[in-house]
């Protein structure tokens, strides 16, 4: 049986009286690339905030590599790397200073940090830019620094919340492929939130979110076959349209 990097069970969350997540469950198997798709406001970022421990779910459970986020918070957080929707790098510092800071937050020794930073910068084509301030980098380069940072402590789970927002087409495609190859190389489970359907491949797993609920899930190729469509955009439109009709007729 394949190990789950991430297991989310029946999550409920509200902002005051506004329900943001309603019984959301999903799994990310080790080494799999899982796309979490949905329009803006579907609840993806709220779900990320809960999985990263920034918000506490009002009901439900989150486990990372078998560690319950509520009961074994530190173990769970230690297995996770995150790239947030908005850049969270320190603009005034250099790439190396940002990466050293992250390594120390994860308790890495100076020797380990040096080795992993060097390896990560090489993998992310940043080797010559170490002393550059983040403020002077392009959007694509910043994202690569954030990816490098998220992988420094070799997490079993990588969470990326709309990481390609603001990138041009070629940087976007390059970045997605780069994450896929790293995910395979290190057997890391990836949860990739996006509203851009061209970032989803046919052999990915997909969860479709709308109005705080998962309305469809499965292997993309299986869903394409089941709905008799040949691309992910049509599949998404079909699923969300069907769901909208069901909700409206139910109402």
């Amino acid at each position: 049986m394949t190990e789950n990097s991430l297991q989310v069970s029946s999550i409920e969350f509200s902002y005051g009286r506004t329900r943001a997540l309603n019984g959301v469950s999903l799994n990310v198997e080790a080494g799999r690339f899982v796309a979490l798709v949905g329009a803006n406001g579907a609840g993806k970022t709220t779900l990320f905030s809960i999985v990263t421990g920034l918000y506490a779910a009002h009901a439900g459970d989150v486990s990372i590599m078998g560690h319950n986020l509520r009961a074994e918070t530190l173990k769970a957080l230690g297995k996770m790397g995150v790239v947030f929707q908005r850049t969270t790098l320190d603009m005034d510092l250099t790439i190396l200073q940002n990466l050293r800071y992250a390594a120390e937050l994860h308790g890495l020794s100076r020797k380990d940090a040096r080795e992993r930073i060097s390896e990560g910068m090489k993998l992310n084509s940043l080797s010559d830019l170490g002393k550059r301030k983040v403020a002077g980098l392009s959007g694509g380069q910043r994202r690569r620094v954030e990816l490098c940072r998220a992988l420094l402590h070799k997490p079993a789970l990588l969470l990326l919340d709309e990481p390609t927002v603001g990138l041009d087409m070629s940087s976007r495609a390059g970045f997605v492929e780069h994450v896929r190859s790293l995910c395979k190389q290190y057997n890391t489970g990836v949860l990739w939130a996006t509203h851009l359907m061209d970032e989803v491949n046919h052999d990915d797993d997909i969860y479709v979110m709308a109005r705080g609920e998962i309305i469809a899930q499965g292997r993309v190729s299986d869903l394409l076959a089941a709905h008799s469509v040949d691309n992910v955009t049509d599949l998404y439109n079909l699923i969300t349209e069907d769901n909208k009709n069901v909700v409206e007729s139910g109402a």
Partner: peptide
């Protein structure tokens, strides 16, 4: 997480604050 890791984290946070301080004269 060990005390050693906690001290490394503390060093990281202080270093970052110091660097920001130097950068924001």
């Amino acid at each position: 997480m060990s005390w050693l890791a906690a001290l490394r984290c503390l060093r990281g946070v202080i270093t970052r604050e110091g660097l920001r301080f130097i950068n924001q004269r």
